[in-house]
Design a protein around this nucleic acid. Sequence first.
DNA 1: CGTCCATATGCAACAGTGTCGCATCTGGCC
DNA 2: GGCCAGATGCGACACTGTTGCATATGGACG
Lengths: 169, 169
Amino acid sequence: MDDGVQHPTPDPVVEAVRQIRAHGERVTVARTAVLRVLADADEHLSADAIFAAVSRAAPGVHRTTIYRALDALERLDLVAFTRLRHDAATYHLAGHLVGGTHVLVRCRLCGTVSHAPGDLLDEVASRLAAEQGFALDPTAVALTGRCETCTKHVGPLDHTHVNKPPRHP
Amino acid sequence: MDDGVQHPTPDPVVEAVRQIRAHGERVTVARTAVLRVLADADEHLSADAIFAAVSRAAPGVHRTTIYRALDALERLDLVAFTRLRHDAATYHLAGHLVGGTHVLVRCRLCGTVSHAPGDLLDEVASRLAAEQGFALDPTAVALTGRCETCTKHVGPLDHTHVNKPPRHP
DNA sequence: CGTCCATATGCAACAGTGTCGCATCTGGCC
DNA sequence: GGCCAGATGCGACACTGTTGCATATGGACG
């Protein structure tokens, strides 16, 4: 293992598999299939979507196994997930496997999800590390609020009297 | 008693009710009960816990109504919720109703949830506002990562056999 | 105060997501 | 090849949140 040198991993799956082995966990077809699916799709996927994709590549893998594989991979810090509103969780490879990271930003009103630069939370991460020894994973964060459009449309939410439009549909 | 002077709202429920009316929405017993419960409990509550508490104060309110009330209140920016891991959503009054805010910080490995000061995300909020016009709600954010204790243990989880013990019975 | 209508609620059944127990199979190692 | 802890297949389950429809209620207006 040449962990001393920092070189870009050509295939995150290879690196992930190596880490699974390094931790004494088993490398199975289901787990590699999940990793491959997540690596190929560079967007966040629901467990159901992962199940569908894995079934295509390796038929016979059960739905439950997907969940268990995702759980195992998450404990190994190879996979993370976020929750937007009440929808299903969306999984993705951990940030340290894919280099580029981004932070999810969701508008509570219109539901639109956009991306913010990955370094957005760098200072927050530093502060958490210094004050609590907490290692933040920026890729697993979903920031909730109101997007520009909705803020303009609905109006400022401060306590200054909201101008109530007469009920006209 | 209430003039133009800006002073902290004594009762967030009163303020919330005022805003419901100001938006032309209806003030119902279910909605006020939900607000009251959330205001009394200064911690985050699951929908089920809210249902139980509301049932005590105003029996006869249906479970579905709790969800619909929470949904309506959320659209009015009076209530927000967070999702920790795969558990149920936990609801709370919007930050602007209750002066003090805090940010939830969760360790992915041990599951411990701690609080960070509410101003932790101030800079992030400013940046999002400036760059995207996005109004962040810091109280609706759950930061995921690894706590100090788990990081020191270096291993991903409890069964961390990084260096495998010789296995023979 | 009484009427009216949009909408909030009660009710029950449903949908989706994730979990559990147990028998069987497989990966890693001898 | 053979062994065994751990992973998987399978089914059934638990839980959270949603929907359609009939009815009750809020609040505005006369």
